[in-house]
Design a protein around this nucleic acid. Structure first.
Length: 278
DNA sequence: AGACGATGCGGAC
DNA sequence: TCCGCCTCGTCTT
């Protein structure tokens, strides 16, 4: 999916334009029924991790999750809508079109707090100020002590917004092996990881700037912050830019996501525990 | 034509 | 814990 920085970027674009305007048309396709929301004014557009919420007057909020393939495009209302459009918001001459969304639904605004998925979401890592303390607090939950850090940072209950690219890139920049466990990293190590993830996403937003070409909103990106390139993600068997060792890939966590890392720069975690056998 | 992999979940067991 | 879904691009046969 577009990760947290992309969602924030597109949410800012919608937030610049839509609040205060009336929606002439709200339509979804293939994602279930919506109540008739035409004629309502937009109150706010807010990102939360990888999701976006469009609050309308009268107690309805649209929740949009792009999944892996979702994109937003800004079109003229008279243009032909893309076939893949799954959510269309028309206001006057402007049409914001979300294609291939994973989910787009209307939720009574008052029910957001008790929504089964949303209630468990961790703090948005890109919020101001960055909620590092809360992310670390959640990461240090005793039940998570033995989890691998490469699995944990993808857990949106700890902190919302980190996706598979930032997982690998963050751990590389921190020189942390993705199989290192929370208890091995300790509070300081965990803190550095979340600080770095927030820093990379924020930096990427800065570098991308407005990011819009014409009236299209390119929310897909393949470059990282400081160098505008990826150090490890999708670089299996290619030489590490720092040390030359071949980048490795393995499948990590219950969700089975690919993790890329440099076996030389990101040292193996220390053995779990001295057994006293010898 | 088919295999594989991809920015992510989430239902089923 | 496993795997199905989604849609697309790229590479191999």
């Amino acid at each position: 999916m577009p990760e947290g920085d992309n969602v924030l970027q597109v949410a800012r674009m919608l937030a610049r334009e839509l609040p205060g305007r009336t929606l002439d048309l709200v339509r979804t396709k293939d994602l279930g029924e919506l109540p008739d929301l035409a004629g309502r004014r937009v109150e706010s557009v807010r990102p939360l991790g990888k999701q976006m919420f469009v609050e309308l007057e009268g107690g309805w909020t649209l929740r949009v999750h792009l999944g892996m393939h979702g994109t937003w495009t800004r079109l003229h209302a008279r243009e032909r809508m893309p076939r893949a459009a799954t959510l269309v918001l028309v206001s006057g001459d402007v049409a914001w079109v979300c294609s291939r969304a994973y989910r787009a639904e209307a939720i009574p605004t008052g029910a957001l707090r008790t929504h089964p998925r949303l209630a468990r979401l961790g703090p948005d890592l890109l919020a101001e100020p960055a909620p590092i303390d809360e992310a670390v607090r959640r990461a240090l939950t005793p039940a998570y002590a033995n989890r691998e850090i490469g699995d944990l940072v993808m857990d949106q209950r700890v902190a919302a917004g980190i996706g598979n690219i930032y997982k690998s890139e963050t751990l590389f920049e921190c020189r942390v092996h993705p199989r290192a466990r929370v208890h091995q990293l300790g509070e300081d190590g965990v803190r550095r990881v979340y600080e770095k993830a927030a820093e990379l996403m924020r930096l990427n937003l800065l570098i991308r700037g407005k990011g819009a070409r014409g009236n299209r909103v390119p929310i897909r990106r393949r470059e990282t912050p400081t160098t505008r390139r990826l150090w490890v993600y999708m670089r299996k068997n290619q030489p590490c830019y720092d040390c030359g060792a071949p980048i490795e890939r393995f499948v990590q966590g219950d969700a089975g996501r690919s993790t890329y890392f440099c076996p030389r720069c990101q040292a193996e975690p220390a053995p779990l525990r001295v057994t006293g056998q010898f």
